[in-house]
């Protein structure tokens, strides 16, 4: 345990005796240092936060894992997309399980993020010094909804097509630049090949990058703003 390679990875000297040693275990680990060295006991009671933020994050991790696996059988092209989705349901082993897991986790994440927001609101946890973390939280809710929306088109069935038709026409009501935003979003005047690829790239690359960065900032700020409230 005290060998040189071990010590090169885990800096904290063993055995752990003092409170300083205990705090150093947290400080010296990338995974553990997300947790504070000290927490108030009431702050980790279930009834205090209902763990809604952590549940949202857990669901996000489920979505990342299942999403990456689904990507291996999915091509964002017409008519491949719909056929791939059907193959995932009927041909690929555990495909239907992964697809449903992805879908249900997405629905639940929207719910849990929203409930998290309600919890924070009713606890008054948006008040100074946590105002900016509330703003980040609102952006995270927005990104969650955008991820759901872009993912909606990918099965490329009737529901997907018309939902995105309606959604992209809502964008058209933005004053002055609405029609341009819609054109760039769809890559054309109607939903087609370009739209599918654009939504795929948004869903699998662009939005996950944004949401991952903001989640990191959100967690970091919880600590910097004085811990759970």
């Amino acid at each position: 345990m005290q060998s040189k390679p071990w010590r090169s990875v885990f800096r904290t000297a063993l055995p752990i005796k003092t409170n300083l040693d205990r705090s150093l275990v947290m400080f010296n680990s990338l995974a553990l240092h997300i947790q504070p060295v000290k927490v108030r006991e009431r702050a980790i009671r279930f009834s205090y936060t209902f763990y809604l933020g952590m549940i949202s994050f857990f669901l996000f991790m489920v979505l990342v894992v299942t999403g990456i696996l689904l990507m291996l059988y999915y091509q964002p092209a017409i008519p491949n997309a719909y056929e791939n989705m059907k193959d995932l349901q009927y041909v690929v082993s555990s495909g239907i399980f992964l697809r449903n897991l992805h879908r249900w986790a997405a629905h639940l994440m929207v719910i849990s993020v929203f409930l998290h927001m309600l919890r924070v609101f009713f606890a008054g946890a948006y008040r100074p010094p946590r105002e900016f973390n509330w703003v980040i939280g609102v952006l995270l809710l927005l990104l969650t909804l955008l991820l759901s929306y872009t993912g909606y088109l990918l099965p490329y069935d009737q529901l997907a097509y018309w939902a995105v038709t309606v959604g992209s026409n809502i964008v058209k009501y933005v004053p002055i630049i609405g029609k341009n935003i819609r054109f760039v979003l769809l890559g054309g005047n109607t939903i087609g090949e370009y739209t599918l690829v654009r939504f795929y790239v948004l869903h699998c690359v662009v939005l996950p990058l944004f949401i991952t960065s903001l989640i990191a900032l959100h967690f970091w700020r919880i600590r910097k703003d004085g811990g759970l409230y």
Binding site: F183, V184, G187, G188, N189, T190, G192, E193, Y194
Partner: peptide, 12 residues
Amino acid sequence: VYKFLYPNVLLE
């Protein structure tokens, strides 16, 4: 980037 996102040829 904006010009790149604006397709010049549409497959419509």
